[in-house]
Design a protein around this nucleic acid. Structure first.
Length: 312
DNA sequence: AAGACGAAAGTGGTTGA
DNA sequence: TCAACAACTTTCGTCTT
């Protein structure tokens, strides 16, 4: 929170368009910028950068200064709840010349704002409930959840939800967030835990990725290695061996056009055999979600091209 | 008996006319 | 919008240990 308050600093508007008066008052109590001459409200929703308390000496300032709960995108109002101040002050605290105009102006503005924001708020509340439930089922770290929430917010603001189910979109934002954070989950994994069809998640994801210009690149096989190998109880030696295989494969351009998950599975299979803690193709198939056949095909290719001999 | 293998047909998504 | 296409899956019979 910024403590250095500059109460009457007016940044963008410094002249009343109605009467060209330069005497403007910034009213932080009502968050409005008002013309002293005609009373027209020039801007509202100003941000008050000052603290909400007043300090009369430096000791009090020390005591009262504190940081509040952090802002989080996981609550629909970002954790910053507005409380209305019912001081013994009249709504129209003081008399404003030409009051009608200012009033109508303001009402119209609010009317418009409420109409559009109401739908979005409701939508967001419901979406965040889904997000909470789904990401718990997937055991996602908080950073990923917040990322997903941010993406969803953007999607709502851009009206991308229309015609799609809320839970479907939430699932796809989770998918996107996982990728963004470098800890991708497969579409199948998310589909399993959320009861949303894989097809739908993929479709929504593509739409959002394009419309919001997230520019998420295709996942790399190495992103899956850590998770799969811990699921398979593989040691760190095997893990790094698998990564080495992938690196070499990448250099030889064996990876382009191949599914990253299949490659990850195949390299783990090879590494597990080479390191003497062998897992069967079936086991790897089950944790990775690709079939044994694909693992076989991939690892044959890798073994041939890289000259690795595997004793089965 | 379990794991690995590979042929063949089927599926879902991308691409380019 | 449609067909061609590549990657991947499913299924299933065979081989190896």
């Amino acid at each position: 929170m910024v403590n250095n308050k500059e109460p009457n600093k007016i940044e963008e508007i410094n002249e009343c368009p109605e009467c060209n008066s330069k005497k403007l008052t910034r009213d932080d109590n009502r968050a409005e910028l008002v013309c002293n001459n005609c009373g027209l409200v020039l801007d509202d929703d100003l941000i008050d950068y000052g603290p909400e308390w007043r300090a009369f000496d430096s000791e009090q300032r020390e005591k009262r200064a504190r940081t509040g709960a952090p802002m989080t995108p996981l609550v629909h109002d970002k954790g910053l709840t507005t409380t209305i101040d019912w001081k013994n002050r009249d709504f129209y605290g003081r008399s404003i010349p030409n009051r009608n105009r200012a009033r109508v102006y303001r009402l119209r503005k609010w009317q418009k704002r409420l109409r559009t924001s109401q739908y979005q708020e409701r939508n967001l509340i419901e979406a965040l409930q889904y997000l909470d439930r789904m990401s718990s089922a997937l055991e996602l770290p908080r950073s990923v959840r917040e990322n997903a929430a941010v993406i969803y917010r953007k999607a709502v603001n851009k009206n991308l939800i229309r015609g799609r189910s809320i839970d479907g979109v939430v699932a796809s934002t989770i998918y996107a967030a996982c990728r963004q954070c470098g800890v991708p989950r497969t579409l199948d994994e998310i589909s399993d835990k959320t009861n949303i069809k894989r097809k739908e998640i993929g479709r929504n994801y593509r739409h959002i990725n394009k419309a919001l210009k997230l520019n998420l690149k295709p996942t790399s096989p190495k992103d899956y290695i850590a998770r799969f190998s811990s699921d398979l109880d593989l040691g760190s030696e095997t893990k790094s061996r698998a990564l080495k295989i992938l690196k070499r494969a990448n250099k030889k351009e064996l990876t382009s056009g191949r599914g990253p998950i299949g490659l990850a599975a195949a390299s783990l299979y090879m590494a597990s055999v080479l390191s003497g803690e062998k897992r069967t193709q079936k086991e790897i198939s089950e944790t990775s979600g690709v079939t044994e056949v694909t693992i076989r095909n991939r690892y044959k290719e890798l073994a041939d091209e890289l000259g690795i001999k595997i004793a089965v």
